[in-house]
Amino acid sequence: MSYQFDFLWLGEYWPQIAKGIAITGQLTLVGGVVGVSLGIACAWARALGPGFLKPVVGAYVELIRNTPFLIQLFFIFFGLPSLGVQLGELSAANLAMIINLGAYSCEIIRAGIQATPRGQFEAGASLAMTPFETFRHVVLVPSLQRIWPALSSQVVIVMLGSAVVSQIAVEDLTFAANFIQSRTFRAFEAYIVSTLIYLALAILLRQAMLALGGLVFPRRAAR
């Protein structure tokens, strides 16, 4: 009763896999760009923003960071329609990933902002910049540079976490694996192949994030 591996189905089903990779990539791209932008806004609000915003953003961050992504996704997709907010599965998945990454990246970026030497804020003020201009031109970029490796890891984690969106019928890579599994009964092969694709995507995404960091952030002279 030895098991015979069979990867012949790959020939027939690779379009599904390619489509799944495209959807996973699209979700990661939108989630990454919008999520990190939301994270920057929240980090500003939490570290430097007006007093009334701080507890609101704090509650958002704590709530998201202490509940599973799966439940956030289900709440948005199944729960919100009873409030009259009906989202398609792809929009729900995008929204869930943005909200999730927004909260995590807020904490990461806030750490970067808080590590900014006080003198930077004072220097900005002495050049007659408003607090917001100081943040925008003086504080933000070095802060992002400081925490870029941690932020890159978080984006990779969110990409891997996106596997669960298959549960609300988004046709991502995991969905493709499930589809192939149910058609061919080659569960082991289907999941091994998609797991390896995820691994390759994770390595690629990490390299891309680091390359982007090298491109965006100017090399600073030795301190």
Partner: peptide
């Protein structure tokens, strides 16, 4: 580097 969901599957 792989999703926990895949490991479970």
């Amino acid at each position: 580097g792989t999703p926990l969901l895949m490991q479970l599957f």
